[in-house]
């Protein structure tokens, strides 16, 4: 087995005539946490969706755990790779109870011990058992995002793809969710790919990151290098400066 959990070579995605991802190559090691930052329209979410198999119109090569994947993913793929979406208000089915939302994966894969797995997933994201039979609209934003994380964990995946997992949350809730994600990665040896527009959030959770601009991955560097101001690409520097100047109070 190779050390590379994810290996992407020359990924290209087009919407009609417009190419939005222009030849992105990146590799993520087993157990690593890799961040992708960029402004809206930079193509960062499109890359993540291609990795997740939600976008079928891409070219290039994507390997997971040394195995190349195609446009359509077999069912077993989703036991290895799961995703957490940006909007905790939009990513939970409005007419299904939390119980139903969480058990869907188990039903699709015909897994046993539904109750046990469900309760363990809720426990892992520190949600009380009492939320199990509620509907999403009865939960707070933070609780919903925990449900979304629990749904991903129930597959016992190796890779978690995170699409702006905290950008719709209040800052105090964001801290809780970021801590939770950090602990889960440590305890379960997960590999993360996180997309975010917020550089400090990426720097907090990830050890290495890539910067995207106009569909290209313009720079890849470690978070240490980023902090030590060793970024070389002007766009990276620009983002760092902006983040520094706005995040600290006067």
């Amino acid at each position: 087995m190779s050390d590379k959990m994810i290996d992407v070579r020359d990924l290209r995605v087009s919407f009609g005539a417009k190419e939005v991802v222009k030849g992105v190559s990146l590799a993520v090691q087993r157990g690593e946490s890799f961040g992708v930052v960029g402004e809206s329209g930079s193509g960062k979410s499109t890359v993540l969706r291609a990795l997740a198999g939600l976008n079928h119109h891409w070219s290039g090569e994507i390997d997971f755990d040394g195995v190349p994947v195609g446009a359509k993913r077999p069912r077993a793929f989703f036991r290895k790779v799961q995703m957490v979406f940006q909007d905790p208000f939009g990513s939970l089915h409005p007419r299904q109870t939390i119980d139903r939302i969480l058990s869907e994966f188990l039903a699709v894969h015909g897994m046993d011990d539904m109750d046990g797995r469900l309760n363990r997933a809720l426990e892992a994201v520190a949600l009380p058992q009492s939320v199990r039979f509620r509907f999403p609209h009865q939960l707070s934003g933070g609780q919903r995002q925990r449900v979304a994380i629990a749904r991903a964990l129930i597959a016992e995946p190796k890779v978690l793809l995170l699409d702006e997992p905290t950008s719709a949350l209040d800052v105090s809730v964001q801290a809780e969710v970021l801590n939770l994600l950090a602990h889960l990665r440590e305890s379960r040896g997960l590999t993360y790919v996180m997309v975010s527009h917020n550089l400090s959030v990426v720097a907090h959770l990830c050890s290495r990151l890539g910067v995207m601009q106009h569909g290209e991955l313009v720079e890849q560097l470690s978070v240490e290098d980023l902090r030590a101001r060793r970024a070389t690409h002007p766009h990276t520097r620009e983002l760092v400066e902006l983040s520094r100047s706005l995040e600290t109070p006067v």
Binding site: S172, A175, N179, S200, H204, E247
Partner: peptide, 18 residues
Amino acid sequence: LLNCLPSLDHPRTDLPVL
């Protein structure tokens, strides 16, 4: 509110929770 923000310059393993 100020404390629980992740910071670029001051890394922490755990963010203080409000």
